[in-house]
């Protein structure tokens, strides 16, 4: 656990980018959200949103068939939880020209709808060496 860029608390998780580890990623996010006093409904939303966020990152890794490492950072930024995920060294062929990870259209659309509905903001991007995605969800009740 560490101080985030904005002075908020950050928890980092490093795990293999495999389907079997998604439950750990979302359960960890839910536990942290609970500690940060998000409501029951907000925690349920975050569990699903974090799962979808991770899916956008591990699907390309699965398609390439090579082991990847998924890094997740959960940060309390003011009254919001920000989750940033990245997969290291993606094959350039695994991302489209617009920097978005390729996915089967129907599932990608469903992921997009779910994230649009559950979080305040989300996005994904590619750098020279990483495929990354992030989301932000606000907390409705101020922590004491």
């Amino acid at each position: 656990m560490s101080e985030g860029k904005g002075g908020g608390e950050t928890v980092e998780l490093l795990l293999p980018a495999t389907p079997e580890r998604l439950a750990l990623a979302r359960t960890t996010g839910a536990a942290i959200a609970s500690r940060w006093r998000f409501t029951y409904d907000e925690i349920a939303d975050l569990r699903l949103a974090i799962d979808e966020l991770c899916l956008t990152l591990i699907r390309p890794a699965q398609q390439e068939g090579e082991p990847r490492r998924l890094t997740l950072a959960y940060t309390l930024d003011g009254s919001s939880m920000v989750v940033r995920g990245q997969v290291d060294k993606p094959n350039p062929a695994a991302v489209n020209g617009d920097g978005q990870a390729p996915q089967p259209t129907s599932v990608s659309d469903l992921s997009e709808r779910i994230l649009d509905a559950l979080v305040d903001e989300h996005g994904s991007e590619r750098t020279d060496s990483q495929l990354s995605a992030w989301l932000r969800k606000g907390r409705s009740v101020a922590a004491p």
Binding site: R26, L48, D51, E52, L55, S106, L110, S111, I114
Partner: peptide
């Protein structure tokens, strides 16, 4: 207790 877009894709 939990269902994501992958599950929805299978059901569709």
């Amino acid at each position: 207790t939990f269902l994501d877009s992958t599950a929805l894709g299978v059901l569709v």
